[in-house]
Every structure is written in structure tokens, then in C-alpha cells.
Design a protein around this nucleic acid. Sequence first.
RNA 1: GCGCCUGUAGCUCAGUUGGAUAGAGCAUCUGCCUUCUAAGCAGAGGGUCACAGGUCCGAAUCCUGUCAGGCGUACCA
Length: 548
Amino acid sequence: MSKQYLQDQIIQAAQKALDVKLNAQSIILERPKQAAHGDWATSIALSLAKELKAKPRDIAQKIVDSLDLDPSLVAKTEIAGPGFINFKLASGWLYSELVTLLDKKNSFGCCDHGKREKVQVEFVSVNPTGPLHVGHGRGAFVGDAIARLLQSVGYQVHREYYINDAGNQIDKLGRSVLARLNQIWGRPFEFPEGGYQGEYLKDFAAQLDSEQGARLKALPPDQLLSEATRISRDGMLENLKLSLKDLKVEFDEWFSEVGLVGSGAISRSLGELKKKGYLYDQDGAQFFKASEFGDEKDRVVIKSTGEHTYFAADIAYMLNKFGRGFKRLIYVWGADHHGDVPRMKGAAKALGHDPDSLEFILMQMVRLIEEGREVKFSKRSGVIVTLDELRDEVGPDVMRYFFLMRRSESQFDFDLDLARKHSDENPVFYVQYAHARICSIIDHAREKGIARTKSDLSLLKEKEEINLIKALLEFPEVVLGAALAREPHRLPTYLQDLAGVFHTFYHQHRVVTDDAGLTQARLDLCDAARIVFANGLSLLGVSAPEKM
RNA sequence: GCGCCUGUAGCUCAGUUGGAUAGAGCAUCUGCCUUCUAAGCAGAGGGUCACAGGUCCGAAUCCUGUCAGGCGUACCA
């Protein structure tokens, strides 16, 4: 890679000319915004000025004089402005990297940066008490995209969904369904306090009645409740799995809280904490000394009722993950849980794990906007726009792209009207259109009976061609950067830029012409662009249509 | 009150570890389809980067304060 090469050369030159030792991290190479400033630029002379007590431009000059760059790789080196050193790459280098791109095909953009390190990503983990709504979509898509990105840069990624299938909420679900059943049967019923009031449970109960009503009606009350609970929990979970699968969000493991409790992991984890002196009893409850690890206060792990808290289960689950050999645990959470981060890191530290190996991706809230006004949604109140409904209206591609376009830290207003329009206003079409257009060109060439031969890429000399090649070659850096920063939104940004560069090329130059050699070269360029669009979209889980 | 996130064009948002003249889409206006997809291209207008200080050769980016919005501050999930 060109960046690596330049970094090495600058380090050597600085050593030789100025007798300073630099490492690769300190050589900041960036792509200048303006083409006139070359392909790569470094401000190293500016940052060394203070330390060396010399003028930045003089330092730059000394470095440049000592550089021994291969002219077939770097065409021009110059000092500009206050002391930037600008590099212009030789076109031959671009062509050889383009060949590499064409050879790598689907794996272009992948690398082995992660060295097969085991990383666990936990996301969604919504209680199985109702359908997924629009607010859950963000976590689902961002978690999925982060997993895809990490996988592509060489990590061994394990995706998990933690199922809260034990405890209060499931009880409430069961009682809510039972109430609906009794309602249908004309039996006296009382809706549980804080139960789930949504329409979806009426429908669920009605279907349950039609399928197994006779059997259920005959059960004694206790058994009826436990049956209703079991059936509704399993049913809700099954629906969650289907919804996510339809949106191409998949998991390697569905991790059950019931299983965790049953294995005794929670009491073992708490025992461990107790042994180390981090637990104490107060008011009939057990507390973890979170305040010793920077949290605001100590946190309850066992309530005075004897039940464990979510936090207790989270600790046990965390230990379970470490026990399976994961070096890094990524939690994709809604920002409303950010207050839980210090206690989790504290528990990790208390149990002898590096708190920095726990990583929390906190996503700000999603607001649903319809007709310019915010729509409140909540499972318990029952007003829901489900992910399923949205998918039926706008399709998975639009949804995924929409949710992945924005940084996680900023609040996201999901404009229902705009999403429903399904119009060309949506940027996902802009990117997909570029891909479809390329496929169409390649088809056109095939229909004209043009046989593909090995091309001479050096025929690609036009400004728009060079710009396109450079933009394509940036892709691996974008992927790696997005993966390491856990910022999937960088991909849509890049792909939109790339689409613009491609469309400009397309309008300026014909691919299939009478010039056989040039046609071959441009078809190769199109192939390269198609590869990058396809790879980029696939990392987002968005389809790359061949026709639109 | 305290903690976390956010504030960039009329609207929705990008802006890499501080870099050279702050970008895109939508909206508005002007051109471009007998030639590989016009879901496209070319161009124009539009900015006190919330505000005030500070650090730095250099700040939308880092620090402090102020203002505004969101979230959190449970033996809830």
C-alpha cells in the first residue's frame, strides 16, 4: 500500500536528515481535500518545528532532500504552504493496484488486521415480550454492520442475542396473554398491573385460542398460566427470530438467561465477588461495591425478595463470555443504558479482567416522525410501528441504509413519510443505481459480442478515469477505519461519494466504443467499480441490484 | 443538582489521529436524453461551524465556561 511505503520512507529520511526517530503512528499521512495538493500529504515538518526549533519549511526541505523515492511509484514531491510535504503518486502505481483489486474481487477490502482474534458482539437482546419496533432497528443494523466489518478485517466474530427469558417481564407477558384468553372465553379476568396492553397480544391470544383453545380451557388455573407463559414466550421469541432474519440480521447464538440461571453461573459469579470482598448485605439485599470502581454508587445484585437483578445476570454472562475465550466484548446498547457502563466495567475489573476489553457502543434514541410530529411508541402502551410493518412498506434495503447512514452518537429522527415514499430522494438508490448501471454496461458489451481480453490499463488517462481509480483504491482504508472505529456510517458516506465519481465518469466517457483497446480497459475499470460497490453494499447488508 | 450525548447551509446530515479555500443529499434556480440506465450529469445561490474565552504555527475538531435539546441518575427493564 502506498501509505505504508511513504511512511517508511519518511521515517528513514527523517532519521538521516534530522537524526530524529519516528514511528509509523507519528507520521500522519492524509489525503488532501484539494487535488492540487497531491495524493498524500504530511504535516510532519510542522509538528517537528517546535522540538527542533527550526522553521517548518526548512525541516520539510531537509526531509525531502533525503527522501529516496522510487520514481515509478511517486511522481512528484513538493513542499507547500507553511511546510506540508505533498506527494503525487505515479500513474503506474495506480494501474498495478487496480490489477490487485481485480484479482481480489469479493475479497477486496478485506485484510487480516484482526489476526483471527476472537471478538464477541452482543446486540438487540430485546425482551421476548412483543414485536421489534422502529427503535430497535438501529441496534440491530448497527450491531450487524459492526460484526460484518470486523469479520472482513480479520477478526473471528461471534454474534449473540441475549434472551431475557427469565423473570418479571416474562411473567407479565404470560399473565397478559392469559387475561386476553379469559376475555375471549368470557371468563372473569383482571389485566395484570404493568402488563402488555398491545393489540398484538389480542391477536396472539385469538390465534392461540383457535389452535389450542379446547386443550387450554380444560387445564387447572396454575397449569393454564404456566402453559400460557411458555407458549407466549416461545411464540414471541420465534417472531423476533423471523423478523430479524427477514432483515438479514443473523446470530451465531441465542443465549438464554434461563440457561444461565440453570447452570448456576449467577451464584458462582456472585460467590466469586463475595470471596474477593466486593459484596455486602444491606437492608436484606446484596450490593456490589461499584463505587470502588468509579461508579456513582454501589449496585444491587440480589434484591431483598431474593431475586437476582439484571446486573447480576449481566455479570455472570460476562464471565461466561470470557470463559469462552473472547478477548473483546462489544455491547451494542441504547444510550438510555449508558449509566450501566461503569458498573459493568467495575465488575469486570473486580473479577480480574481488563475493563477496557469491554466496549460499549451507545446509540442515541430514535424518534419516529410522522406528518412532522413525533410518534410515541412503547410496547407497554401498545402504540407500535413494528420493524415488520416498516419492512413491508419500504423494504429492507432502504431501512438498513437509513439506519446505517448516521453516526450512533447523534439522535436519529426516522421520517416515516420520507421512508414510505420509496422515491429517488433516498440515497440508497443513488448507490444501487451506480451498481445497476455498471452491470448494464457490462451486459451491453457482452451483447455486442465483445470478448474480454487482457487489457492495457495505462490507456486510462482521463481525469475522470484517474479519479475513479483513486476513489476505488481508497476502499480498503475506509473499511478498516470504519471497523476499528466501530463506525459503519463511514461506508454509506464513502459509497455515495464513489457513486458520484462514477456517474461523472460515465457521463463524460463512453465505455463501449470502436477503440477496442480502450474499451477493454474501461470495461476492466467498470468491473473494478462493480466489485467495490458490491463489496461495500454487502458490508451494509444492502442488496446490489443488477437492474433497476 | 450531577453524569453522558448532541448543536455545522432553509431541511437532513458528513467532515478520519487538530491541517491548506468547511462538504454532500433534499429543497430553489439554469442548462443536458436519436448514442452503454435521466433513480443520472454540469452549473448557480445558500455558512458568525450555538455563544464567549483559552491552548497551538494552525481549531468545526482539544480545554474551560455559558445557552439550547435529548437521555440517564431504581431493590424497573
